[in-house]
Design a protein around this nucleic acid. Structure first.
Lengths: 167, 167
DNA sequence: CGTAATTAGATTGTGCGCAATCGAATTGCG
DNA sequence: CGCAATTCGATTGCGCACAATCTAATTACG
């Protein structure tokens, strides 16, 4: 550890307040990447809320539906792996989706530990409405395709590095 | 609405699966910027957890402490404005911090609707330990200073656009 | 084959985040 | 000045996220 030069890294260290150029650098909390991501994530949730309300969905439920539209009859574990959520979050969430009539949960015949989550007709039909949601969100972000893709790749790479650092 | 050309925006629209170059573009959920941010935010929380455990803090509590180290005796409203959280979140959170002996909450004499949140000696002293946390997080992200700053600025701008779109 | 180890999903408990609501205090306006 | 409107923080209610735990089922290994 001592042989490796300590890399000064700004993602969590508050930047100094000295102006490097014509524009002062943000200091403290505002210089922390994690806080910017925290803020952006909450902003997305808030932006989604009125759009998803007519569908009767919360944002995490929407993510689950998106996953099922891609891969209907996924197991709880597959949903969890896909979304980075555990069964503590998914079980009650899926129960509520089932109560809403959007999905059904069925024990897998081959491996009875597994539960497959199937879309109902109503769940399938909802996919059409999701197009409007995606369109509205796309506009709300004010990003071009290239901008969004660039950010997305950086964020995914960051996530992977963080998860790897925690192993 | 009809006169404005519909801008195709990838931040929420699943990208097509056709390879544009040597590397296939992610499709569906993986093409959604909001999901990348959701994932990165959770990854940060997870990365922070073992680092903050010795301090007895959760990540949101840590953000509050950071804010108070910057501006001791902030009101609940100021904390909320700073962190984008409402009193429903902050009141119980601050209560727990008070129970931990890190802060005290006092009614403001000039305007009794307000409550000022003061750091205790223990709360002040904890700032030293936070340096280690920041350092570890900085390393875990694997970002250079310039990379982190660039991402941070984009994310902040995105957050502002999202919040503005919701008005 | 039998048993220990592992897996899968549900549950319990805790903290977080937000909408709605409330009571008290302050501000704004006629 | 009196009262309506607004502000502030606390509370209630609900859904989310995760750690720990549990039961049942499956896999691994001697």
């Amino acid at each position: 550890m001592k042989s490796a030069p300590q890399q000064e890294n700004p993602s969590a260290l508050p930047a100094s307040s000295s102006p490097a150029a014509s524009q002062p650098l943000p200091a403290g909390l505002d210089a922390m990447l994690c806080f910017a991501i925290y803020g952006a994530a909450h902003a997305f949730t808030r932006t989604y809320k009125p759009l998803l309300e007519p569908l009767g969905l919360t944002y995490p439920q929407y993510l689950v539906m998106l996953t099922l539209w891609e891969d209907d009859a996924s197991t709880v574990k597959q949903l969890g792996d896909r979304l980075g959520l555990d069964s503590g979050t998914l079980s009650p969430l899926l129960k509520r989706l089932e109560l809403s009539g959007l999905v059904t949960r069925k024990r897998n015949r081959q491996d009875e530990r597994q539960v497959n989550v199937h879309l109902t007709d109503a769940g399938l039909a909802m996919k059409q409405q999701a197009v409007g949601v995606m369109s509205a969100i796309g506009q709300a972000t004010g990003c071009t395709r290239d901008e969004a893709n660039a950010m997305l790749e950086e964020l995914v790479a960051l996530k992977e590095r963080l998860l790897k650092a925690g192993e």
